[in-house]
Amino acid sequence: MAKHHVEAIINGDPAEFLCGTEQTLLDCLRDELSLTGSKEGCSSGDCGACSVILDGRLVCACLVLGVEVNGKKVETIEGVAKGDDLHPLQKHFLQEAALQCGICTPGFIVAAKALLKENPHPTETEIRYWLAGNLCRCTGYDKIITAVQKAAAEMRGES
């Protein structure tokens, strides 16, 4: 079957790719565009390792079809840092030792970024519920929550 031609803005840059009807956005990012920072942990929307921002909205890339992003904006983990300049979330994840194996980290950072855009003053509970769709099996979440809290404070200009 013929593939679909898709044009989208990915991490601010125009991108085009061919994708099969059944290919998910995650497949397209990883296999067609070599953006392997988004991870596949479940392919059913339960683990959040493939979290990306689609036209400003946090989604699991495994639950979106590649063809659906035609004409849309996609932000992935690869677009979070600006060159060498890490995003406050990335800095605080490192400083707080908020990752162990690191497979879930891209998804957490993208999801937390979406949270802080919507709510710059999240409480611990709000952070925990927002990130409840992102599974981490290594850390017990403690240091992840702290990292998000500290990044939020920095982004509010409090530190």
Binding site: T36, E78, V80, L86, F93, L94, L99, G102, T105, P106
Partner: peptide, 18 residues
């Protein structure tokens, strides 16, 4: 900060399926 940290917060680190 861990030596492999930046790669793991930016999506550059290569895991099994990458």
């Amino acid at each position: 900060i861990r030596p492999d940290g930046v790669d793991k917060v930016t999506g550059r680190a290569n895991f099994g399926a990458d």
